[in-house]
């Protein structure tokens, strides 16, 4: 593999990692705090992508589409949270997983009904290329990577510096004790749920120009997203970052070497991690309820 090829592959991998990170960090955080596995997040991912598609093709502005997607998804997520999750939180992980799969399916049915089954293309908002180490790469990929870095730093600052962030960290350790201080933990749950939905929608919109938008896009990425969460360890942000980076690179190199391997490799890695640590790289074995 030559240097230009290598550089190109690494950048493609990083862009994938960026999207995986946006999609899985919220899932991991939600599990840590609320002990839910919220599969409806993949609906918000699809909604984010579809809104981006609609606004980009109608109004010609990708960034506006991204924003619309985030707002639409958060509104939808708020409705679902208020109507269903209040009863889900008390019931545990399995219950949330099954019920939210129901929500996801309803959403997919609705998307098929509204936009049909045909995959839709989304125009790349930035068409320029840059030269790097003897290869030319689309600027858009660097923007994606940059955005993920900004989000990661923002999330860290939010969790470490703000009082609500501290309450979230406290809740991840022990929800009852957090509530025992007089904090309305359900409000914090709602906030984290919306944060996760917003990130999922953003991931969907950002991902849209790199793939085609189609009704099953949420289902197609579930396995990878959860492999990342699992490899990193449920509830660990650091783990999510590490495994996003790992899986992004593995898939990118897989594609350049032998395409079918790219989709197999994360699974192999997951099995290897399980052999060594059944709770993922950074997951705590005490994180159960």
């Amino acid at each position: 593999m030559s240097v230009p090829e290598l550089a190109g592959t690494v950048v493609i991998g990083l862009a994938m990692s960026a999207i995986f990170f946006m999609l899985s960090v919220g899932l991991s955080l939600s599990y840590g705090l609320m002990r839910i596995v919220s599969l409806d997040q993949f609906l918000y991912y699809s909604v984010g992508a579809y809104m981006t598609y609609v606004v980009t093709s109608q109004a010609g502005n990708f960034w506006l589409g991204l924003l619309t997607g985030v707002i639409a998804s958060c509104t939808l997520a708020l409705t679902v949270e208020k109507s269903l999750y209040r009863r889900i939180y008390e019931k545990g992980v399995m219950f949330s997983m099954i019920t939210s799969y129901g929500v996801l399916l309803v959403g997919i049915g609705a998307i098929k009904y509204i936009w049909g089954l045909v995959p839709r293309p989304v125009m790349t908002p930035i068409v320029g290329h840059v030269s790097l180490l003897g290869t030319t790469l689309p600027v858009y990929r660097f923007v994606v990577i940059g955005l993920a870095v900004v989000l990661y730093i923002g999330l860290r600052l939010f969790l470490e510096r703000t009082i609500v962030g501290k309450a979230i960290r406290a809740g991840i350790e022990d929800v009852d004790k957090t509530e025992g201080l007089g904090i309305d933990v359900y409000r914090i749950f709602t906030l984290v749920f919306l944060l996760t939905a917003g990130l999922s929608a953003l991931a969907g919109g950002i991902h849209a120009p790199l793939i085609m938008v189609d009704p099953h896009m949420g289902l197609k990425i579930i396995a990878t997203a959860f492999m990342i969460v699992i490899i990193g360890g449920l509830g660990s942000i650091k783990g999510t970052v590490v495994s996003s980076l790992l899986i992004g690179q593995v898939m990118a190199f897989g594609f350049t070497i032998w395409a079918p391997a790219a989709e197999m490799a994360p699974f192999v890695i997951m099995l290897l991690v399980f052999l060594i640590r059944p709770t993922g790289l950074y997951g705590s074995q005490y994180l159960r309820r």
């Binding site: 599990y31 596995v37 992980v93 399995m94 997983m97 579930i222 396995a223 959860f226 492999m227 969460v229 699992i230 449920l234 079918p260 989709e263 197999m264 994360p266 699974f267 997951m270 099995l271 399980f274 052999l275 059944p278 709770t279 993922g280 074995q285 159960r288």
Partner: peptide
């Protein structure tokens, strides 16, 4: 491999397994 996993991991690992099986 899988029955060692705690419940959430078990469920998700199976989901991933199925996706991979389909692909294989």
């Amino acid at each position: 491999l899988f029955v060692r996993l705690s419940s959430s991991y078990f469920t998700l690992a199976n989901l991933a397994l199925c996706a991979i099986g389909f692909f294989v």
